[in-house]
């Protein structure tokens, strides 16, 4: 079965073709980062205006790459939430219009389920069950994943997402938007021993996290340092290092605690922050020591993309329905998704 996936929940337009037999055939992505940079953050209306210009050209590109035609499609998966309402509506409208026109079915996909399943686009792929660390600019949560649609939230951030903390801290340090990746790059040159920032909720018994206090701690540190004059590049890099160390430490400890609490031996890391090199090193070291298997999506599929939506749609073909009236869900609990029975249980 050939599934077209369309992602338009935030500032990336992604389209992909996934074949249930042959895997990912093609994917194409347009990032709006440069457009939003002038505004210092994502402007929802501009995001929507761009999505509607991009979806069809990206679709054509995907079909050409995979040497397929629209007539080969069996279903269209699209992100129905969570995300920016207006942006979600663009992908949803085009997906439903196209599926109606082709007389094929649609699948409304949960954006986070896409991220959660995206390590299945890598080789080797994780088997169920596993603990998932979903960490991006919009989300930070730990889940026990027993199967598709069997998601148990173990812990989550109570305020900012980790990626959001990266971007806000970068802004504080005068780094250009989106500052997260720039902050990480600077941190690599920083001295890990010069500053130490708090690790919020590290010692708590639950698996929830908090990152907004860390941002405030950076602000206090910056003010302190500014008393000795403008912050130079070395100090800025050292602060970045202290910040990144703190975030990585929290994510590592909470992931370790989640594995221990759930008794699971596999960890899946997904979302934009999952591409962070220092985080990957820390998790890999921990995993090697504890004999845990850790899985990541391919680096190019860590940020939002159409491939994970096509994949999640392909997994949920049993929920496909004819193109008709549709709704989007800017807020949508992952745990509310229906469970999917694996084929061996179906009988």
């Amino acid at each position: 079965m050939l599934v077209l996936g369309i992602e338009s929940s935030c500032d990336e337009t992604g389209v992909a073709l996934y074949d249930t037999e042959h895997g990912l055939l093609s994917h194409a992505l347009h990032t709006q980062m440069a457009m939003h940079a002038e505004y210092g953050g994502v402007v929802p209306e501009l995001a929507s205006r761009d999505h509607i210009r991009r979806v069809l050209p990206l679709t054509r590109e995907c079909l050409q790459q995979a040497q397929k035609t629209l007539a080969d499609l069996d279903a269209i998966a699209y992100t129905a939430g969570p995300g920016l309402g207006g942006a979600l509506l663009v992908g949803s409208a085009i997906a439903n219009g196209l599926a109606f026109g082709l007389d094929i079915t649609v699948i409304a996909v949960h954006h986070l389920e896409g991220h959660l399943l995206s390590p299945m686009l890598a080789d080797p792929r994780p088997e169920f069950p596993f603990v998932a660390l979903l960490v991006s600019g919009g989300h930070t949560q730990l889940m026990a994943v027993h199967g598709i649609g069997q998601y148990e939230t173990l812990g989550e951030t109570l305020d900012d997402a980790a990626g959001e903390a990266f971007d806000k801290t970068a802004k504080l340090l005068g780094l250009p938007y989106p500052g997260g990746p720039a902050l990480s790059k600077l941190a690599e040159q920083g001295d890990p021993n010069r500053f130490s920032l708090p690790r919020p909720m590290l010692k708590s018994s639950h698996l929830d996290m908090s990152f907004s206090g860390l941002k405030t701690a950076v602000l206090t540190l910056v003010r302190q340092q500014e008393q000795h004059g403008a912050i130079d590049d070395t100090t800025r890099a050292d602060i970045c290092r202290a910040f990144q160390d703190a975030v990585v430490d929290v994510l590592l400890h909470k992931s370790a605690a989640a594995l221990k609490q759930s008794g699971l031996r596999r960890l899946v890391v997904a979302g934009g922050v999952g591409a962070n090199r220092q985080l990957r090193e820390a998790l890999n070291q921990f995993a090697a020591k504890q004999h845990i298997d850790v899985f990541y999506p391919p680096l190019s599929l860590c940020t939002d993309n159409g491939a994970m939506i096509a994949l999640a749609g392909a997994m949920r073909l049993q929920y496909a329905r004819p193109a008709a009236g549709f709704s989007v869900f800017p807020r949508w609990e992952l745990a509310s998704l229906p469970r999917l029975n694996p084929p061996q249980d179906a009988a």
């Binding site: 509607i52 207006g86 409208a93 219009g97 196209l98 109606f100």
Partner: peptide, 19 residues
């Protein structure tokens, strides 16, 4: 209205692209 406008235009784009 921006959002409403895009729903019709998106649907029309999808329908037209299909055929």
């Amino acid at each position: 209205a921006f959002t409403g406008l895009r729903i019709g235009c998106g649907l029309a784009q999808g329908l037209a692209f299909a055929h």
